[in-house]
Design a protein around this nucleic acid. Structure first.
Lengths: 252, 252
DNA sequence: CGGCATCAAATTGCATGCAATTGGAGCGCC
DNA sequence: GGCGCTCCAATTGCATGCAATTTGATGCCG
């Protein structure tokens, strides 16, 4: 079932990648909320490895933008600012438009069946927890990326999709994923029909509406706590660019 | 001058990031060719750190796709297949179109001056070695990405640009970067004028022609040696997907 | 009662050491 | 002479240990 999720790219040794996968999944299922602490000792003990390995795994996840690593401080699950979340979605839209552009009209019957099966699974999961729904919805997009047979595209789509998941737990309200499922079905249909322009539009609209459902207001009023609310500001201070380059109006 | 290149995102500790930056630079300047071995001991000794740190750095670079890490084997500089190179360029085109779309008409005079200064530097470097020209050309694109003020975009553009550099040393012939410089100037002009559509076209065309100059033939006849020529095949075997999903015609 | 210095526990940063795996040289066999 | 086998040096995989830094708690002083 979940065998395909391995990805393998850039995953060094087994123990490290096991931890990475576990943490990634915990994060996208929101078992680990943004800001959650990830001490090396605790991880190592939990996964039965030494701190060295846990540390290495954290490094990988930091490279993917899922955790934040500050020197001499406990690693935490990343807390993207609202603007970063918006940026992630913008990038995701372009990447996934590329995915469906490459895929339109080129899918085999078996692949279309696999996609439909996945959406069926999403449908069945509607009664269950949000966590599973979100994970399945994300995996649908990653499954699409896989079908391009382009490891690089898979990597980037996966990463940015995970990041977008992260922001859902931060800024979105309880979530209703029904419409998303229908949109997935529409995308499959357009892919099968081979309508390149149409499917790109559909994907664009789909992701845009997911983003808009999620990023309701630029101020994360219901952010987890002060730390999260303050995160964007801290970010600005951290960014080494704002001093030199006068900030431009973003996304006019 | 090069201060801006720090990026900071996902770079954990200092020693690790120093090694990463050094290796990245060595790779894009083609001092380290694809396939070059990177033993942990040697790196550690060279940079005055322990193997643990060198290993961690290699892990980061592997996450960026610049080095390949196979279990119990010496790490090597990544050797992208021709198809992967083409994919990288396709992704890069979309990402950089996004960059200039966000930037069109929003740059300050200071920023435009900075861009022009950079291209002047590229011009001056024309007499020098190819290595410096390539590095400067790449840094121009990264500089643009920085000006979006979007760390995520910076990260992805940087990564994919580095990957594209990698492929230049594999598949491209000696290289003449003059036209590229003019194209850079044209992009700056269009950005200043604020012509969003035009600048996106320019960037698209620019990157496409760079790709076409580089990826002359789908068969890397002049590839470094057997190992490189065989890389794509090895890749196919490695990929865990080909068995289940019948391969679709790529980029028809 | 609130602010500040001091100190101990917790945690990371990094090097070292040992076991396991690999690559290849040398050697015997066909 | 070519092919396969065995064994050893080289290298990675990982755990542990020690020094340095941060956290936050306690107690002191205003």
């Amino acid at each position: 079932m979940a065998a395909r999720a391995s990805s393998k790219t850039s995953e060094s040794s087994d123990k490290v990648s096991v931890i990475c996968r576990a943490l990634r999944r915990a994060i996208i299922e929101q078992a680990l909320e943004p800001g959650a602490k990830l001490p090396e000792d605790a991880l190592g003990e939990r996964f039965g490895v030494s701190r060295t390995i846990a540390r290495h795994a954290l490094g990988q996840l930091a490279a993917e933008g899922l955790v934040e690593l500050r020197r001499n401080r406990i690693a935490v699950v990343a807390t993207p600012s609202w603007q970063e979340a918006r940026d992630a979605f913008d990038i995701r839209i372009e990447l996934e438009r590329l995915v469906v552009r490459q895929l339109a009209g080129k899918l085999t019957k078996a692949q279309i069946a696999e996609l439909n099966a996945h959406v069926d699974a999403e449908d069945r999961a509607r009664g269950g927890t949000d966590a599973v729904s979100i994970r399945l919805a994300t995996e649908f997009h990653i499954l699409l990326a896989h079908m391009t047979n382009s490891p690089i595209l898979v990597r980037y789509v996966s990463e940015v999709a995970y990041r977008c998941c992260l922001t859902l737990s931060l800024y979105s309200r309880p979530h209703s994923s029904e419409c998303a499922i229908n949109e997935h079905r529409a995308i499959i249909a357009a892919l099968a029909k081979g309508d390149e322009v149409k499917v790109m539009e559909l994907m664009h609209h789909h992701l845009d509406s997911v983003a808009n459902r999620a990023l309701v207001a630029p101020t994360p009023q219901r952010g987890r706590d002060l730390l999260d609310i303050l995160a964007p500001y801290a970010d600005e201070v951290t960014s080494d660019r704002v001093v030199k380059l006068p900030k431009i109006a973003r996304r006019g």
